[in-house]
Design a protein around this nucleic acid. Sequence first.
DNA 1: ATGGTAGCCGCGCTA
Length: 255
Amino acid sequence: MKLATWNVNSLKVRLPQLLTWLAAQQPDVVFLQETKLQDGQFPRQEIAAAGYQVAFSGQKTYNGVALLTREAPTEIVFGNPLYPDEQKRLLTATVGGIGMVCAYVPNGQSIGSDKYLYKLEWLDALARWIAERIAANPQLVLAGDFNIAPDDRDVHDPETWAGQILCSAPERAAFQRLLGLGMKDSFRLFEQPEKSFTWWDYRMLGFQKNRGLRIDHILLSEPLASRCSAAAIHREQRKLERPSDHAPATAELSR
DNA sequence: ATGGTAGCCGCGCTA
């Protein structure tokens, strides 16, 4: 089973790229973030024609998450029942007996801002939700845009970014709390190239200079981590004309 | 030097 996560930064703009990428990569489950589409505008037909079922939760202009699956998703839960939230950032479903949680963690803007406090609250509630889901089904995938670079090796310039948004100690502690629930960072189950990132700022030639961060992750509960045979970042997507500022990440499960 | 770029029914906001 091949899992993929991608912050597409507008599904409307990125739909042609997504369809081409799906045909090339043939993932079984795709976690999308920043669809920026109201549910009525979701491109159901195009996704169905590509061979995927969908569950989605969107709003206009901002946020929006979707799950594309070969097998029908069941037990779909919109948002976090433990944290009422107007913003459409979380989607949970069961696919082939595996719990799938698609997350678009708040960016946080800057340390100490209202948005930062919201981010930390949101992450606290996410951890509680994940604990509940693992207890219900030990096979769980949590994937999406975490807006957290877990470690200095996930940062192009750790000194400049030290303590900054996406890298601060409380954000990293929130990420570690998810690992403490038994989730594994699939990317780090394998040897990886240095300076592997999933996001590069559109500004200041960020991608050309590889000034990136690894903030998009596929976390696997222990029974799934033991089945994981590969994990990769598809940075070639960031080289295309009119790219998302994020590249997709994938993880493969054997058996 | 707080810059810069992309996306959104925009006239600023979020990332």
